[in-house]
Design a protein around this nucleic acid. Structure first.
Lengths: 321, 321
DNA sequence: CACGGCTCTCGACAAAAGTCAAATTGGGAT
DNA sequence: ATCCCAATTTGACTTTTGTCGAGAGCCGTG
């Protein structure tokens, strides 16, 4: 029997089945193989992105609430995942939507910046495969060691794998122990280049972290929960790509931030499309901070969060009409 | 029962089925309808482009011959449909490929110019549905009356319908009986605007016609076969959007061309992506003329035609190295 | 050269999806 | 108000598809 079922064959089977609309048994006889093999090839074709099945996310923007949110917050586009939905696993619902939205936003030739976190990894995990060969996925911030399976480099690589794209990693720790070392490392040519190239991205994908003891920064040991509490009292409102921001979305002036290796907020803002995805209702203040800081142009949230945002925007409308 | 199964429901079913990967019976119970309805909704979802199934056309560009053709002819991209293929109906093979390529080239917000002919109509006919709401499809040339089912306006409208896009028709005859009348009509504001807007298109889709008695121009009575033969002897090499071109791809200086209402070749050349599709092997010279005239940047042909083009380009290579 | 390990393939079964005619329902016309 | 029409829904049936374990060819190794 054949050594490799040759990408060629998979492609041909997919072509006959999906483009010409033949039945599997017809494809099988055309190709002189068994129906079972055809079924297997077709699965592979879907898994490798040779065929693309995507559903329009239109429905979720069409929502009146989404439109109102766009206006109220000055965002380019908002998608709202219904939460009453009878979906078996509602917790991934936002992630599934976000993955679809993300795939809809990606274009050939794009350079995509990806941050890290549970949300992002969940998105990567449910994302369907696509074949975007001249796309590059770059990591937005340094690595956090150890115990998590959704480290920055893993998020980047998984998404790159799904898109059949190039993944560009970034081998520096997210946080260093002294400001001096961080400065020195940032000055390293390899690192400096990576950081400065971030503003060349066409699309960014990130979430926002909460400033509490549940934060990955605490769980990974980058900060103690005491330090976190102190930062909070000093105005910390959220975490973006490993950096702590205040309620206005500006980098908080603190030692921790000076010890971080990550994309500067200005570089992030230079990216035309910034897709922010928030799953947890508890991240209301962090999200407000990120929006205030102009860190997001496209937003995916759940219905409950959307309602809160709308109430908030209604209560405290934008300054100038 | 429900008045309208509300786009909403179709969308929801498609979402649960395709994005979440539920089975039809699961979707049915979530939505409190029967499995049969779900199946029906899903078909509608595919037909309206709410879900998109596309297969990468990579395979056909990866072909070595396609690459060599691109180089030899200076085109941006070439796709070659295999002709030995055991496909049931090989004549539509090129059209199926062309439709896929076309859908891959269309982007949101595009304005697309479409010409007419059997080839184009066949493409429209096999094209799968998509949901590109802010796309406009415009007609590149005037209408030819009567006996054909693939009139310019039909090609335009059918493609617009498939894409869920806006179709912009062009209500003028393709050919008038006097040059004077043609001039007057071209000067009409409605017509003039349409013609001058053509160069704003982002993508064009057309084929090339042969200069013989089988031409639609003859069959529709725009020209007699005697006139056609005469034009041929005067250097006519092909037909583009209803206009007759010579071997260099320039508009032939003749009364017929002066009586035509159609896009100027210069406007066509101003369109960034010009997809030309040729099905018949007999259209070799017309295709050469079109390529010489720079009327095509992207090309879909059959394997046999590709070979002839390559032989030709090898025998008479491009002027400057 | 025989051996496992490997991947690919096949046939048969179980599951899922597609289809049809009949029934139901709302809306509009009489 | 009532009837008719067209569209939608449904349950039952058929066809198509997905999956499993067994088997067969290929490779490197002992």
């Amino acid at each position: 029997m054949a050594i490799r079922p040759a990408e060629q064959l998979i492609h041909k089977a997919a072509w006959l089945y999906y483009a010409h609309g033949l039945r599997q048994d017809q494809v099988a006889s055309q190709l002189n193989i068994s129906r079972a093999s055809v079924a297997m090839y077709l699965r592979k074709a879907r898994e490798t992105g040779i065929v693309n099945i995507s559903t329009s996310t239109q429905l979720f923007t069409d929502d009146v609430m989404a439109r109102r949110l766009e206006d109220a917050l000055g965002l380019d586009a908002v998608w709202i995942a219904p939460e009453n939905s009878h979906v078996p696993d509602p917790s991934t619902d936002i992630a599934v939507l976000a993955a679809s939205v993300f795939l809809e936003l990606v274009k050939k030739g794009d350079r995509i910046g990806v941050a890290w976190g549970r949300t992002i990894y969940t998105i990567a995990d449910v994302m369907s495969y696509a074949d975007l060969q001249d796309v590059t996925v770059v990591q937005l911030c340094g690595n956090l060691g150890a115990p998590y399976s959704y480290r920055p480099d893993q998020c980047t690589m998984e998404i790159a794998r799904r898109l059949n794209a190039k993944g560009l990693n970034f081998y520096a720790p997210l946080v260093l122990s002294t400001e001096e070392l961080a400065r020195a490392l940032r000055a390293e040519p390899v690192i400096r280049e990576q950081l400065s190239d971030i503003s060349d991205c066409d699309l960014a994908l990130y979430s926002v972290g909460a400033v509490d003891a549940d934060s990955h920064l605490v769980k990974c040991g980058a900060l103690s929960s005491g330090e976190m509490a102190e930062l909070r009292s000093r105005g910390a409102a959220g975490v973006i790509a490993g950096q702590i921001i205040d309620a206005e979305g500006k980098v908080l002036d603190c030692s921790y931030n000076r010890r971080v290796i990550s994309a500067e907020l200005a570089s992030l803002r230079a990216i035309a499309r910034r897709l922010m995805v928030v799953q947890e209702d508890s991240k209301f203040e962090p999200l407000l901070a990120a929006i205030a800081g102009g860190l997001c142009t496209h937003l995916v949230v759940g219905a409950h969060m959307a309602q809160r945002l709308l109430d908030h925007a209604g209560a405290a409308p934008k300054k100038a009409p």
